[in-house]
Design a protein around this nucleic acid. Structure first.
Length: 259
DNA sequence: TTGGTTGTTATTAT
DNA sequence: AATAATAACAACCA
């Protein structure tokens, strides 16, 4: 689930639920989601701390406090919820953070591919994010074009390379390229200025709509709404969609609309 | 049982 | 040095 728009939604959850609140308790129900920190230390370092304003970079969510910061990554199945403590705890609720107003932040994650890290200070946060490119939502056109200049390899792998630009995942990349009418396997160096501009414009529009929805919408007018159909067809031209594999990920595109 | 899944990372190959 | 391909991670579903 979590690409940039989903994480942006979790930032909103964090902001509404936890910003300005003090941590009363931390319960780790499955330490498999802790990265580089023990359950004991997480609890010890966090209790009594007050959360500040959360921010996001790419698919990473940073939750500062008046002590250490939490750095969340949601993998493919993570999510953040705000509940009252009497709400039933579900099987995949891995970490429960009880706040001083009685509400509870819950990190739920079926597959535990990523999780939460503890950063002692701002410098530690910066080190954790050091390998990421600029956030996709903040990229203006000229910077985007500069990033792509000289890039070898295909456009889809460029878009999903977090060290080049951060936040786009498999669904977003396919959606953006379908919208821009550019085939995912096109080498970046073969793309004309007009095509790169279309990709950038599509990225902006797709991100805006997706952030508003809190996810990549699976509306029928979107590629994402069709890709899991038994016999997927292009929402634009009605022809069957092509499907293949890029960088180990499933890739869906329209042979007719994308060139 | 097999294959597939919106995440990253390590390893090997090109 | 960059990129690409692959498996691994973990849990579940069809």
């Amino acid at each position: 689930m979590p690409e940039l728009p989903d994480v942006e939604g979790f930032r909103g959850v964090m902001e509404r639920c936890a910003a300005g609140r003090r941590v009363d308790d931390v319960e780790v129900r499955d330490a498999g989601v802790l990265r580089g920190v023990s359950a004991r230390r997480l609890r010890r370092e966090l209790r009594g701390r007050r959360f500040g304003t959360p921010w996001r970079h790419g698919k990473q969510l940073v939750t500062p406090s008046d002590g250490p910061a939490l750095v969340w990554h949601f993998g493919m199945t993570g999510e953040l919820l705000c509940r009252t403590p009497d709400a039933a705890v579900e099987a995949h609720d891995r970490v429960l953070i009880t706040l001083d107003d009685g509400r509870q932040l819950r990190y739920r994650d079926q597959r535990k591919l990523q999780g939460v890290r503890l950063a002692a200070d701002e410098a530690a946060v910066e080190r954790m994010l050091a390998d990421l490119g600029p956030d996709a939502q903040e990229l203006d056109r000229s910077r985007f074009l500069r990033l792509m200049a000289g890039r070898r390899g295909g456009i889809k792998s460029a878009l999903t390379d977090q060290s080049l630009l951060a936040g786009l995942g498999n669904l977003l990349a396919d959606e953006i390229l379908w919208r821009a009418r550019v085939r995912p396997d096109r080498p970046v160096r073969d793309l004309g200025d007009d095509e790169l501009r279309r990709v950038h414009a599509a990225m902006g529009r797709v991100l805006r709509s997706s952030v508003r929805a809190g996810r990549v919408p699976d509306r029928r007018g979107w590629l994402t709404g069709r890709r899991d159909d038994a016999a997927p067809v292009c929402p634009r031209c009605g022809r069957p969609l092509a499907s293949g594999r890029t960088a180990g990920r499933r890739t869906v595109w329209c042979e007719h609309c994308q060139s």
